[in-house]
């Protein structure tokens, strides 16, 4: 998992980890969080949505093959949830927004690790 370092303009830091080097403070900025980390797009089970509709939506939103969309649908049905993709935050929000438009319950979670 990558984290950005705070860089102070005008100051010179020696490379961390080398003799005499200074360990820079690890400051996680909002920009680095949004840009660098991977986020899981998760779809949740729902007693109303039809299985065939879920497959249709997954193919439409993600371009999945029917086989892959069916596999995710069955995982949702049996396990209660399925991770559909892991991607940058902006993309994850776009996918979740499109799933919500179609009536699927979907959330975004920061990938573990």
């Amino acid at each position: 998992m990558s984290t950005d370092l705070m860089v102070v303009p005008g100051e010179v830091f020696l490379a961390a980890g080398k003799p005499g080097g200074v360990q820079l403070p690890e400051v996680e900025t909002e920009t680095s969080t949004r840009r660098d980390r991977l986020w899981d797009v998760i779809v949740w089970d729902d007693p109303i949505n039809l299985m065939s509709y879920v497959v249709y939506v997954l193919q439409k939103v993600f371009g999945f093959s029917e086989q892959l969309a069916t596999r995710h649908m069955m995982e949702v049905h049996q396990e209660g949830r399925s991770v559909l993709t892991s991607c940058e935050l902006e993309k994850a929000e776009m996918f979740v927004s499109r799933l919500h438009r179609h009536g699927l319950q979907a959330t975004i979670e920061k990938q573990a690790g």
Partner: peptide, 15 residues
């Protein structure tokens, strides 16, 4: 959904 090729029975039988 059936008319556009998403036959519920097919998915139900797989399940």
């Amino acid at each position: 959904l059936d008319a556009i090729g998403y036959d519920q029975d097919r998915f139900a039988s797989e399940l």
